[in-house]
């Protein structure tokens, strides 16, 4: 609206010089179904919007050090459906989340029981598209107990399940996660098995689950390997994500991988499925994804317009010039 930030059309224009990969994917739309924005900066949101990311899913996870009380979980879940959602909307990015008790912290049994009591408060909220990320880390009995309890919760609420598969002893952990889900009568089509690699993908797809791949430097998938996987397995029930967090990771992993796939001659339709459509198909089973929410500048609540809110107009924010050493 007004004067104090002097928001002009020029402020809202994207940078004119684009990195080469952005040129290659111009006009494409992306959905990153696994990214921990809580640990990322506002600059990342800006860059993600510029690269064509329209919507994201932020799974609940651990925060790099263990929590000691249920109230910090409550505040964390609250921030996923409140503050983080608003932060994303400022850049025109639709923010969804999955709610759950992560496997690492399931090992603190006293705390885990208290968190389980909190979950029903949050899983029915708007934009909560699943229970996640849950599953195994160390593959302890406590992890199994709370994994099972949360599968039951997902079944009751009719929500998809986002499964974290362990870094260590991955293949067995992945198999076990799927076995248990099936044992609880959960349809594999409602389960997204995450952090797959060359060793796990075949079985996950054969058993009818969704196979998600995390493009994450050094510890998970690289995107050249990902190109080979799509060449070999195609695009059915396969999706990629960045899982960017507080580690050395890349919030642009999805658009960058799309660019690399394009360069490698992968069909545009396959790229679309793997980087956008499949994630929507899987998580929209929650009934909580409305694609019109991230098509264009449609404002859902017209009262926002009535009030002339600047920040939400078209979801745009004034742009800081990164290349200048002058800060105004």
């Amino acid at each position: 609206m007004c004067c104090s930030h002097e928001l002009t059309e020029k402020n809202l224009q994207p940078l004119t010089v684009n990195p080469a990969f952005l040129e290659r994917i111009k006009g494409m739309r992306f959905f990153d179904p696994h990214i921990h924005m809580t640990s990322r900066t506002t600059d990342d949101y800006q860059a993600m919007a510029d690269a064509g990311i329209k919507a994201i899913i932020e799974p609940s996870f651990w925060l790099g050090q263990p929590r000691t009380g249920a109230d910090t979980f409550r505040d964390y879940f609250n921030s996923l459906i409140g503050w983080e959602r608003f932060r994303a909307s400022q850049f025109g990015i639709q923010h969804y989340c999955t709610i759950g008790l992560n496997s690492k912290e399931a090992n603190n049994e006293k705390l885990a029981a208290a968190v389980m009591e909190l979950l029903p408060l949050f899983i029915y909220k708007e934009g909560v598209v699943g229970i996640g990320e849950i599953g195994f880390d160390d593959q302890t009995p406590a992890e199994e107990k709370y994994y099972r309890a949360q599968l039951e919760l997902a079944k009751e609420a009719g929500l998809p399940v986002q499964i974290h598969t362990p870094h260590r002893d991955k293949k067995k952990g992945t198999q076990r996660s799927m076995d248990i889900a099936v044992e609880h009568g959960i349809d594999p089509r409602m389960v997204i098995v995450d952090h797959n690699n060359e060793e796990t993908v075949q079985e996950v797809l054969d058993r009818g689950f969704w196979a998600a791949f995390t493009i994450y430097p050094f510890t998970k998938m690289g995107n050249e390997r990902m190109v080979e996987i799509v060449k070999q397995y195609g695009s059915e029930r396969i999706m990629i994500n960045s899982a960017a967090d507080w580690g050395i990771s890349d919030p642009l992993a999805v658009p960058k991988t799309a660019a690399l796939m394009h360069e490698s001659g992968i069909d545009l339709n396959d790229i679309h499925l793997v980087t956008f459509r499949n994630a929507i198909s899987a998580f929209a089973q929650s009934g909580q994804i409305n694609e019109t929410d991230f098509e264009g500048d449609k404002e859902i609540d017209q009262s926002l317009k009535f009030n002339g809110s600047t920040v939400l107009r078209g979801g745009q924010q004034p742009r800081r010039n990164n290349l200048s050493n002058i800060i105004r």
Binding site: R74, N78, I81, G82, R85, K125, E126, G127, D301
Partner: peptide, 10 residues
Amino acid sequence: FNAADMNELV
């Protein structure tokens, strides 16, 4: 209020 999402708060 304490467990509200963004639209619920509004």
